[in-house]
Design a binder for these strands. Structure first.
Lengths: 195, 195, 195, 195
DNA sequence: GATGAATGAGCATTCATTCAT
DNA sequence: GATGAATGAATGCTCATTCAT
């Protein structure tokens, strides 16, 4: 669920409508006119907030990214062993994507939309900085096996995406979901950690 | 490199051009007219082979999928322990995607192109049947931990995609690439296998 | 430089901004929003002064026309021979257009903007009444050759426009400019006058 | 009447329709959709011939310019005194503009459409080269008074435009029209020529 | 009067698809 | 089969104008 501070009601409605429609019909399958209709605004209103449709898409990405990051910052333990903090990151990342499926799915779509590559590569990396910091820490402290950093990062990320895809298809009750995520984390730990 | 049996030269040129352009500009960023130009045919010719652009995309997907499957069938040991055969699947899957980056990237794009969902879900599952058969075997024989089958499948697949992404960015020499893939396989094994 | 009596500061700013932008980008190339920005007012403010953009354009035309007329009335000798007064009209008309290039250019643009035809034909004729009066006088007194009045009027006007165009491209010092205008007037006199 | 060699029927219809509508409603007052309707083609057809509306406008200008030039070349005496040839240029220029009022009016509109300036300045000069060549000759041979070349050019051109404007309003029979143009030419001669 | 967010009609342009040759 | 001119529905975007504050 999107909810943010200095964003006008109309703007919010536009972002929400965009998210819903992009996820359902894709970027190109969603005319700006439909977004406006879904948002309950006039067509032109979109363009008072965003110069172009691509700008809207990019802004939505930024928006979602921030939601995600805010959620992680709020939930991940600031203290504890590396393993504990890693577990938190893993757990809450998967949890957030399950609780915000549209947002997560949109993110994936975005990263595969070729013509937006340039504007965002930097943005994508930044988005992952929370994760990457702790992988680096684990690597530096020899908690992780001596593998290339990027390999570790990619494998860990993929793991989360895999869990999201798995869990978002079946419909497990919360407690079981929790258990499965933790099971996956243990798997990841066995995969990457020393001993 | 695409090369197949009963496909006319023009058709082949069209598929090749499509692949190149789709990967570079995305489906919607690639007009059929440009495909024709790149393929060295008249615009209309595309539509003597494919009723619609979406048909072309679907056919290309089918085409690539078959290439991949043929490659696996040719290379994966038919005999050996489950672990050996799993390793082969893992290894050659990653290897193929590295040797056919455009093809693999196209596949990923395709799976995130929402408006093509219906036509293909079934197709995608079928594509993965080779992998899934052996995961099932490993699960049935208690070689894998007792986790939901789909979870295992997703985690294993994600691992390969993660390795592709990692390796396709750095530029490692063949021998090192080979070593890294095997390292990743060992990680996956620790993650999923019993003991 | 525009400067007039009962016109509010905002209104004046709007007219000035319009003039500048219309001359540079044309009527259709100048959005009212840009005019407002250039004038330092809110977009809506324009419409408290002018019901429509076309009204603004027409008002600006009227405004400029009056500037020109005032200038002529102030400078043209009220007495003297027909030739002397004609020379003044010719001279000061060209001079004004050189000293007020934007204004003059705007006038020309206006007269070729087809969709404003109706509103202004009458206005344009009125604008030229000072000139026309003296051509009529010259014709009535047989100072001019016996040609159709409209022909004389058009030829004389064209002459001034031609001189403006010529002088506004080169950059002659004032004294030379003056001499060239007088030379042109002599030419016009030879063209139109008896003997 | 436009009529040219290697121009397809549809293209011709588009140019004709454009000319008619531009002259009546102006560039911005004429939607491309109306042009298509008037030309009896589909809307999209315009864009198979011209990449943009501005391209169409520029092409139309080029087209009309060529018509004019062809007409002059066909009619102006190649031999004779400077005066005779000047008279021809003057006479046939005015005559053509009267016989092709839409074309001529379009030309004038075009030259005042600010945002097309860049594309065409060069083109406009070229258009006038036939005239300019003979003015230069007259100046070099001291047939004209020793005035700046550009001044002569502008004054002569203005004269023709003035005559067009005058004649296109009244409705004189051909013989009288002819006489009046010649009268105007004599005036111009008195204005510019030595003695 | 002044503001500027909101409106929606209007427009240029794109592009998959058709079809006569 | 191959061609490419023609089609017209669809779409992103602009901008004059309105109106609640």
């Amino acid at each position: 669920m999107i909810a943010h501070s200095n964003i006008s009601e109309k703007n919010e409605a536009i972002l929400q409508a965009s998210l819903r429609l992009f996820v359902e019909y894709g970027f190109h399958g969603t005319p700006t006119s439909k977004i406006a209709a879904e948002a309950g605004t006039a067509h032109g209103t979109i363009f008072t907030y965003y110069k172009t449709k691509d700008d809207l898409i990019a802004a939505l990405y930024e928006y979602v990214k921030n939601e995600f990051r805010d959620f992680l910052v709020k939930n991940v333990r600031g203290e504890g062993t590396i393993k504990e903090r890693l577990r938190d990151i893993f757990f809450y990342s998967v949890q957030w994507s399950l609780d915000n499926r549209k947002e997560f799915y949109f993110t994936q779509q975005f990263q595969y939309s070729t013509h937006l590559k340039k504007a965002s590569t930097e943005s994508i990396v930044k988005e992952k900085s929370l994760h990457r910091a702790i992988y680096q820490e684990a690597l530096d402290n020899k908690v992780f096996r001596p593998l290339p950093f990027e390999m570790i990062a990619e494998l860990a990320m993929s793991q989360m995406i895999g869990m999201f895809q798995f869990l978002s298809e079946g419909n497990y009750p919360p407690s079981e979901t929790k258990a499965l995520i933790d099971e996956a984390f243990k798997g990841m730990w066995r995969m990457l950690a020393v001993v």
